[in-house]
């Protein structure tokens, strides 16, 4: 295999394709009672079904899909948190199973739930994360202040449980940025953020790509966000990729039916489902 260069962490990159997923499949045991499962032994729930795609270095690649379509499972597979049942995934040419430790040094992930030690402060949580990624204390503290400052978080020493959901999500984003990943997995990173915070995070994502040579895989329910940030977009439904193109290309594909289509129109045309967005949830609640 061709060696194409080295990143700052001393890991040799074996390919210029940041992410190569081929025929990836993942299913889970059904959550039915044991007797039903025993009667129906093949009754597995298929979360990701023969998914193949490539993301080039420096790209922002969006994965859009309804709730339960397999987006988070796919990201967990890439993040080495799930082992695929079929196919393979390579990060810069490194297989996620065979070269797990190398892959872990190249990636980081933000999930929709900002999971932290809630009694610890932002500084304590991020210091822990930084040390896991081999950063020394001084450098880590400096970078933490810098990144949190950029995201508008000034209170570094109060327990995270005292922060709003949006602020916690920003700290989660800072945690991922802290390790300077060259493949950043963002699983609905702006869900729950106010418009200003959302914009700050989006700018930060672009900066990570433009100035820090990061490749980004982004899942989102915000179609405008996907349109604004993504170079290419895949639409996933029932665990399968049903369309993949640039946002413009996807919109062009339905122009014969809708004169001025948005990415949301594309989504609904292809999945046949309504988007569940925060506004809808708010309406439901009210």
């Amino acid at each position: 295999m061709q060696v194409v260069g080295s990143d700052l962490k001393g890991v040799t990159l074996m390919s210029n394709v940041a992410l190569n997923a081929q025929n990836v499949g993942k299913s889970f045991a059904s959550e039915e009672p044991f007797i039903k499962r025993w009667r129906n032994r093949n009754g597995k729930r298929l979360a990701v079904n023969d998914v193949s795609f490539q993301v080039n270095r420096g790209e922002i690649y969006g994965v859009l899909g309804p709730n339960g379509s397999g987006k988070s499972t796919l990201i967990r597979c890439i993040a080495t948190l799930l082992i695929p049942d079929a196919g393979y995934i390579e990060i810069f040419g490194h297989d996620i199973e065979r070269d797990e430790m190398i892959v872990k040094r190249l990636i980081n992930r933000v999930s929709v739930d900002a999971a932290f030690f809630k009694k610890l402060s932002a500084m304590e949580n991020l210091l822990y994360a930084a040390r896991l990624y081999s950063m020394d204390g001084l450098t880590a503290r400096r970078k933490i202040r810098e990144i949190l400052g950029r995201l508008g978080i000034k209170e570094l020493n109060q327990p995270l449980e005292h922060m709003s959901r949006g602020m916690q999500q920003k700290v989660a984003i800072a945690r991922a940025f802290l390790s300077s990943p060259i493949l950043l997995l963002l699983d609905e990173p702006t869900t729950g953020l106010d418009p200003r915070s959302k914009r700050e995070v989006q700018e930060f994502v672009l900066e990570m790509r433009d100035q820090h040579d990061a490749t980004v895989l982004l899942t989102t329910h915000d179609m405008d966000e996907a349109d604004k940030l993504c170079d290419r977009v895949a639409i996933i439904d029932n665990g399968k990729i049903i369309a993949e193109d640039t946002p413009q290309g996807l919109k062009e594909s339905i122009r014969h039916r809708i004169p001025q289509p948005t990415l949301e129109d594309v989504f609904m045309e292809l999945t046949g489902k309504q988007l569940v967005v925060e506004q809808d949830l708010a309406k439901e609640v009210s």
Partner: peptide, 14 residues
């Protein structure tokens, strides 16, 4: 319980 298990297991630590 804290929900951090995935982050610890995703880190490049043996």
């Amino acid at each position: 319980w804290e929900g951090t298990i995935e982050y610890t297991f995703m880190a490049p630590v043996s």
